[in-house]
Amino acid sequence: MEEKDIGIYENVIEYISLELSNALNKIPDKYKANVEEIRLRSSFPLNIYCMNKDFFVTREGLLTKDKDKGMIVGKKDIMKTFQLISNYSVYAFEEEIKNGFITLKGGHRVGISGKVLYGTGGIENIKNISSLNIRIAREKIGVSNKLIKYIIDYPSSIHNTLIISPPQCGKTTILRDLIRNLSNGLSYLNNKGFKVGVIDERSEIAGMYNGVPQHDIGPRTDVLDGCNKRDGTMMLLRAMSPEIIAMDEIGSIDDVEAIHEILKAGVKIIATVHGSSVEDLISRRSLSILVNERIFKRYIFLDNSLGVGTVKKIIDGETFNPISLEKGVI
């Protein structure tokens, strides 16, 4: 497993300018397998996030907490990295740049920030790029295996489920694995598997690259890549006859409307949202509608108290009582 993770890391640093990737290549294997983010900021030291801690990387590939020892990222490094990431073709990633990120082969995402230029139709371009954040996507196949029975509505359906967690706690990873499990079908349910429609607005769930999903999302899954949730819902309902629709990071009024559409069609929903408690959700106007209408029957709360993707609790959406968990559900 670790070797595979190191391989993923080494593939990703191929996209970084030579000088920086040489340093990144020298860090110890233990860290290589666990790096979550590589951050490049113009004229600041090279920064990585690893096992919930952040380190600066020195020219020799040592990890340090001392920002003065870190290797400074130059404007040239950022430009070069950006060229490698965009495959020397800024024009081919116009839409992605407008959204602020580019998806790499393997489903890794690179966030971009810099000077934003507005045109008549909203954001037109980002120039003078100052920071790049490379998020390494690691699919964790099987993380939802123990979780899945809590969302099954016996005998042949599922509960509408909302996964809630602060950033970087494994929401998307769990969602992706749930999709994979539901799409594959569950042997103990004697079920042949669900038709799942995924609205992958941020290209994170499936990590589409050239039309091929870079993560295992199961054989009965259709992905609308880069589509907003409202348009995506209508398209899926009209044309793809899904049994379950999965979406990432709901929150706006439009999303609520989309969810109402889904319910009208008798299709089930799995979604994720930022937050850490039910009160958090109620404090947001659009989400409080969903909570009050008792649309979701299961709330799954994640945190990273026992590592990324720890299931803190599962709450029943009707009664708001916690459902007792078996030990070892992570």
């Binding site: 495959n87 073709s89 024009y91 116009e94």
Partner: peptide, 12 residues
């Protein structure tokens, strides 16, 4: 290739 096809440069 570039203006209408938006193919990445190596492919173009």
């Amino acid at each position: 290739e570039i203006v209408y096809g938006a193919s990445p440069l190596p492919e173009a």
